[in-house]
Amino acid sequence: MAVALKAGAKLKSAVCDTQLMVVKAPAGEYDIRCGGLEMLAGTATAPEGAQLDPAQAEGTLIGKRYVDAEEKVELLCTKGGKGSVVLNGVAMSIKQAKQLPSSD
């Protein structure tokens, strides 16, 4: 089931500890999965017997930003887990951290 990704929305993995926050995403419907299963929005709970797909277990790292190839969709990992993050069938990659001048 495709979902809209609203900036600020939280997504939880159905099969691992991964949590993501939407930083930005153009309007539209997305298929967002972690560990092989659709991620859960809001108060949704994991389906009975949901299990991590071993082929989708690259893992996520806290604090990293996951982006699509064009960097139009950006998701911040607020909690790391075992699953891989896949958007519309394509694995998302970690965005290169920018050196931001420290202003405070």
Binding site: G8, A97, S102
Partner: peptide, 13 residues
């Protein structure tokens, strides 16, 4: 505030 932080700081920088 979240937009400010995520837009200007890298986690664990």
């Amino acid at each position: 505030l979240m937009s400010y932080i995520v837009g200007t700081v890298e986690f664990a920088a």
